[in-house]
Design a binder for these strands. Structure first.
Length: 195
DNA sequence: TACGTGATCACG
DNA sequence: GTGATCACGTAA
């Protein structure tokens, strides 16, 4: 029930944080509706590599990434999908973790309604799908993860390191050789991860 | 494999 | 202003 403390997010190693977020619970409280899911897949982004939105410096879109660790970075992708990221590191260091997949936990009926899905299967198995199911919109961009609308808590499943697999990140061919970094983490053999 | 969809960014 | 681009999802 306890929200992760700022100290969790403000550490320097974004790759380690992405790994540790597997098994934690992402919760939203939007329109007086509580919905949540266990984080099953993440990706780390660091302002020192080409895959990151902040690689070339601050812009109107990515400026919340330069804030202190522990806030949400939500942006629109391909004109359709909203992407939910957790900003990490200290103020001025623009690192973030993309949340890519969840195992639905609380408010499943409401999540199915929001996503106009037929069932729980693959309801939150992708970064654009989970934001729809949890009601995450751009109004949450820049919001603190210690606030009352969106947060992460430490009551998912117990995860050991050998249950997590790492692989290259998805959809960032433009990053050249940085696209090969094994900075995507997912729960091994899970039906809840993206394809 | 193809493409919808609209904000964003680098131009100048 | 304008045009290329894009951390996806679906359908075929």
């Amino acid at each position: 029930m306890t929200k992760l403390p700022k100290s969790f997010y403000q550490r320097q190693d974004v790759v380690k944080i992405a790994l540790e977020l597997i098994g934690k619970v992402l919760v939203t409280n939007v329109n007086e509706t509580l919905t949540s899911g266990v984080i099953m897949e993440t990706e780390a982004y660091s302002d020192r590599e080409r895959g990151c939105h902040a690689y070339k410096g601050m812009t109107a879109r990515n400026k919340v990434m330069f804030g202190e660790g522990g806030i949400a970075y939500v942006y629109l992708c391909y004109g359709i999908h909203r992407m939910m990221n957790v900003v990490t590191n200290k103020k001025g260091k623009a690192d973030a973790v993309l949340i890519r997949a969840l195992k639905p936990l609380v408010g499943i009926d409401r999540m199915i309604e929001r996503a106009r899905a037929n069932s729980i299967a693959r309801l939150t198995s992708g970064p654009g799908k989970l934001t729809k199911a949890l009601g995450i919109g751009r109004e949450l961009n820049g919001q603190s993860l210690k606030g009352s609308d969106i947060w992460i808590q430490d009551e998912g499943i117990n995860v050991t390191k050998h249950q997590i697999v790492s692989s290259p990140r998805i959809g960032i061919d433009y990053a050249g050789e940085d696209a090969l970094l094994p900075w995507r983490f997912s729960f091994k053999d899970s039906e809840w991860v993206s394809r």
